[in-house]
Simulated assay, not measured.
Amino acid sequence: MVKKFFERLTNWELWPFAVIYFPISFVWIWYIVRSRAVWFFTPSNPTIDFGGFEGEGKKEMYDQLPPHTVPRTIYIMHDLPFDDVKKRIAAAGFQYPFIVKPDVGMKGILFRKIDNEEQLHKYHERIPVEYIVQDLIELPVEVSVFYYRHPAQTKGTVSGFIHKELLHVIGNGEDTLQQLVQKHPRAKHRTEEMEHRHAHRFDRVIEKDHIFYLSYAGNHNRGAHFTNLHAEIDEQLHKVFDELSNYSKHFYYGRYDIKTTSIEDLKAGRNFLILEYNGCGAEPNHIYDCNMRLGEAYKEILKHWKALYEISKYNHNNGFPYWDFAKGYRFIKQSQKHFKLLQKYD
């Protein structure tokens, strides 16, 4: 326990979000003062609710991307009779396994891989909100690309490019799942989550060389491991994301989560699918897992906040006003209520 505590204390990447961001929060407050708007970021992506800071639905995001770049997706109301759910899924051509997740979700909460009808039934009975059924994309390479573009320009900046590896353990034929979790450098710091998700499997000995995925969500807060691909950022990559940004007309600031056959194919604009577009609430997650000192991470975050402020200010002055305080307050309260509900059922 002492060793684990010391590891968390000395590795800033393991600190709580609020602790990491508190020292630079005055800069965010300064942007609020300069723009005279608490929700100064809302025009950053004006066709997404709240600019994509939080609480936006996936449908509004998918509808603004080229159809061939997004996975097959259908939307299911949580109170639909299960027989009708099965009919809708069959009519859309889905076969097990596939992915389910809330239409309005965050941080990988209630993200599940569904292998059979029994799992689907349990998920449908449990989830309290509308959710999506989506193809399980098994392309071998998962990446995130952070991109921003000033609205007055046609070319933007790819500021971050990372490879993502899902949280997993590899069996040795001797240790139980619980023992493997306790030995894993990341999973051991997520004891409560691992117990919640996998306690019923903890006594299982994982066969040698078998990969057991502890989470299918490629998020830092779900324990995914990132590898910085900054050296791969070039004119080809910029061209792909300039085209995507201009296709959707008003995607100016955010992060694309993508699966592809290879980095080379992504740069050539082929063989990739966009799993998510995260708007102005997206963290520049390329600050993690690249041996950045905390000061360097702050410098990167502040660079992105400056771009966010400038994009939002321009759009505010050109037909997309800041949300007023009351509208934003109502939205964020509803979003927080929704988030707490999802956490309760995760």
Rank of each mutant, 00 (worst) to 15 (best):
K313Y: 11
H124P: 02
D135P: 06
K249W: 11
Q179I: 11
V2A: 14
E243H: 14
P140E: 12
T176K: 10
D289A: 11
S335F: 10
L237S: 12
S245W: 01
P16M: 15
A152V: 13
I109K: 06
R72W: 13
Q134H: 09
R204C: 04
M1Y: 15
N278W: 04
R190Y: 12
R72A: 11
S245G: 04
V104H: 01
H184R: 08
D175F: 05
V85Q: 03
V2F: 15
V133G: 00
G254W: 00
S44V: 03
K333Y: 11
G171W: 02
Q153T: 07
F241H: 03
L342I: 14
V205H: 04
R255C: 04
T176F: 06
S35H: 11
L65T: 04
L294I: 13
Q178D: 08
E264A: 11
S248F: 07
P185I: 04
V145D: 02
R255N: 05
I29F: 06
W28V: 07
D115I: 05
F272G: 05
F161S: 01
R270T: 10
E60P: 01
M106W: 03
N317L: 15
K299P: 06
I170N: 12
P46A: 06
Y147W: 08
F22W: 13
I109F: 09
Q179M: 11
H121L: 09
K183C: 08
F94H: 06
T157F: 09
F53G: 00
P321A: 10
H184S: 06
A326E: 14
H238A: 12
I74F: 08
R204F: 05
A224Y: 02
W15Q: 08
V38P: 00
G279Q: 00
V169Y: 03
M194P: 02
K87I: 12
I332Y: 05
E192Y: 12
L294P: 07
T154E: 05
R201C: 10
H225M: 14
T191F: 12
V27L: 10
P151W: 02
K239W: 15
F17L: 15
A37P: 01
S248P: 03
G105V: 03
A152F: 12
A91I: 14
T42M: 00
T261K: 14
I211C: 13
Y298W: 07
E232H: 12
L9H: 11
Y298N: 06
H230L: 12
E235L: 15
W39S: 02
P284K: 07
I24Y: 04
M61S: 01
R201D: 09
K87D: 11
A231S: 10
E138Y: 08
A187D: 02
I127W: 01
N285C: 10
K249M: 09
F17V: 15
L166V: 10
H196W: 15
G52Y: 01
V205N: 05
V143I: 09
Q134C: 09
M292R: 08
L167V: 06
R204A: 05
K113N: 08
N172P: 05
A92H: 07
G171C: 05
Q153F: 06
K86V: 13
L120A: 07
A37C: 09
H286L: 13
E243F: 15
W15A: 05
E174S: 07
R88P: 02
G319T: 07
D346W: 13
W323P: 01
D103G: 06
P284Y: 09
V33G: 06
F50G: 01
